[in-house]
Design a protein around this nucleic acid. Sequence first.
DNA 1: GTCTATAACCTGATAGAC
DNA 2: GTCTATCAGGTTATAGAC
Lengths: 204, 204
Amino acid sequence: MAKKIKIDADLSTGEKIKEAARKVFTQKGYAATRTRDIAEEAGINLALLNYYFRSKEKLFKEVMLEKVQQLFGALLPLMSDPSTKLESKIEGIVSTYLDMLLANPDLPLFVLSEIRGQQEQLKKVLPLEKILQNISFVKQLKERRPDIKPVHYLMNILGMTVFPFIAMPAFETMGIINKSEFEALISERKKLIPLWVNAILKAK
Amino acid sequence: MAKKIKIDADLSTGEKIKEAARKVFTQKGYAATRTRDIAEEAGINLALLNYYFRSKEKLFKEVMLEKVQQLFGALLPLMSDPSTKLESKIEGIVSTYLDMLLANPDLPLFVLSEIRGQQEQLKKVLPLEKILQNISFVKQLKERRPDIKPVHYLMNILGMTVFPFIAMPAFETMGIINKSEFEALISERKKLIPLWVNAILKAK
DNA sequence: GTCTATAACCTGATAGAC
DNA sequence: GTCTATCAGGTTATAGAC
């Protein structure tokens, strides 16, 4: 069994490069990754990277757009479904989102820290401001608590759900927690967060 | 009135450079900042930067340690005080921390994304794992809810408090929110979060 | 399509004059 | 202490052979 094979060999060259780029960019960020890192990770030559993608920046933007959609796009269908009521919607959002984050633990920190100066591209892909107005979830929050801005609950749910993944690297380098302990915590939170959000919704 | 003066002129050269470094590093991160950016921001020559600080990395580490202490250090005295009871401790933590974050909005994203590979330096300055064991706040949480790990409440409080500052740049570039709207939200949360944390502590 | 070699550029750091 | 000029090394991107 080959242990240090980096990228699946039976992918098209373009996909191998892109997969390598996904990995290196999300781990190190745009400025700190060298195209050589990506080429090596992909098991191809540096020149090929520029043959398939015109430049480092172009490759990055493709990866970035994907990641933004992965991070935000996963939320929209869950929040939009008008057939589920608020409680089960919260449960679904938290559970699905935590699963996605466990599979992509460094996605949030990557997107949120590398998003600077990507306004142009983003607005095309994710017209979030318009979506957020008429989405079923927001309406239900408004109904339940007309006295509190729905965005507050959004922040609370995302904060409780996403923040652990943002802080994990720090806690990990400080030796406070390791990966398996973290995953155990997250699986506890899968049941707890919906409970807590419910309590928050009732708080006076 | 000189509008584009970058750094107060009546500082020692070393402090001018460090102040500029604080600003540029926290905005762009280590890899993306050029020592030339810092020199220009400080209104001095590039060579002087290397005269005062031996290298880019050394300058960065000084700034980084400061910022880590600012981000985590502010919490410790608040969480340690054994004379305050749980409710008012939560109120104090949230209120003080939000004030600090409003004054340094990009501090959390900077520290949490640039902390990689700083283990050595950090453990000297912040032996957090030991502190967290015996701190008054954690004990009180354990007493109140022996059935839930205290770290969960830590994550909830920090998530609700800090996460908005992490997500703000993203929401800002998407045009969902602007700075003054954000600050208004935060000042609302100053009263709401303690309420919510209380509700969470009671949730069954 | 894929490679080697190299061009063109940028960045951190230093030498040396003042 | 502060500057100008420059070096040394590294990085992106391309030219050109296969």
